[in-house]
């Protein structure tokens, strides 16, 4: 006589299902669109000549046709870019309307933020980014990334000093605005031109 076949125990089915579910949840990556957000400047007016900028207010970052880098007129490497930009844009004393000789000037008009302790003078410093038509997009993004990182680090520093947390952790809109005003994203992209070089 055949042995009686017991009914399969379905009690653990739920556990298996959950296990599978968790496995898939962990392993699937949803492609979230991420990227570096930038704002383009409006087109320049036709009748205006070159705007005069004082030399100490500008840090020139050039990327050549073969992806080599010039920072402030000197050939340099991308690993130094972040530090150079950070030092250039650093605003040591935001409550002072003047800055040391080797640093960019301060803006003429202060902005007033009570949460940062009254009037602050943001730096006038601008990063002038210029690239050749032959520069690779990868290199361009690496440069943009380093610039963004430098600004983010400065904002973190300021935010840490006044609010005791990183800029990205701030939730109060006023605080976010204050920091953004104090350290603006000062990246200017030159009108396209052949800069050549190799």
């Amino acid at each position: 006589m055949a042995r009686q076949v017991n009914e399969i125990n379905a009690g653990s089915m739920a556990d298996i299902a959950f296990l599978l579910l968790i496995f898939f949840l962990v392993t699937t990556t949803m492609d979230v669109d991420t990227g570096i957000t930038r704002k383009l400047p409006p087109p320049p007016p036709k009748d205006i000549d070159d705007i005069k900028v004082i030399k100490r207010n500008v840090l020139k970052v050039w990327v050549s046709k073969s992806d080599r880098l010039m920072i402030g007129g000197k050939p340099d490497d991308i690993v130094n870019l972040r530090n150079e930009v950070r030092e250039f844009l650093r605003n040591d004393d935001i409550h002072s309307p003047t800055s040391p000789e080797n640093k960019p000037e301060k803006k003429k008009e202060p902005v007033n933020f009570q949460i940062l302790g009254g009037d602050i003078w943001p730096s006038k410093g601008v990063i002038s980014l210029k690239n050749d038509r032959g520069t690779s997009y990868d290199m361009y993004i690496q440069v943009q990334n380093e610039l963004a990182a430098a600004i983010r680090e400065l904002r973190d520093e300021l935010s840490q000093k006044y609010f005791g947390m990183k800029f990205s952790q701030l939730t109060d809109n006023n605080k976010i605005k204050a920091i953004q005003k104090a350290i603006p994203i000062a990246i200017s992209e030159a009108e396209p031109a052949e800069i050549g070089g190799n």
Binding site: T37, R38, L40, P42, R133, I141, N145
Partner: peptide
């Protein structure tokens, strides 16, 4: 890419995002 950016500037689409991983 520069050409595209110039076109976007002219038409006033200033907000851009460089898609990166």
């Amino acid at each position: 890419v520069t050409d595209v950016k110039q076109q976007l500037r002219e038409i006033g689409a200033f907000k851009i995002n460089y898609s990166t991983a």
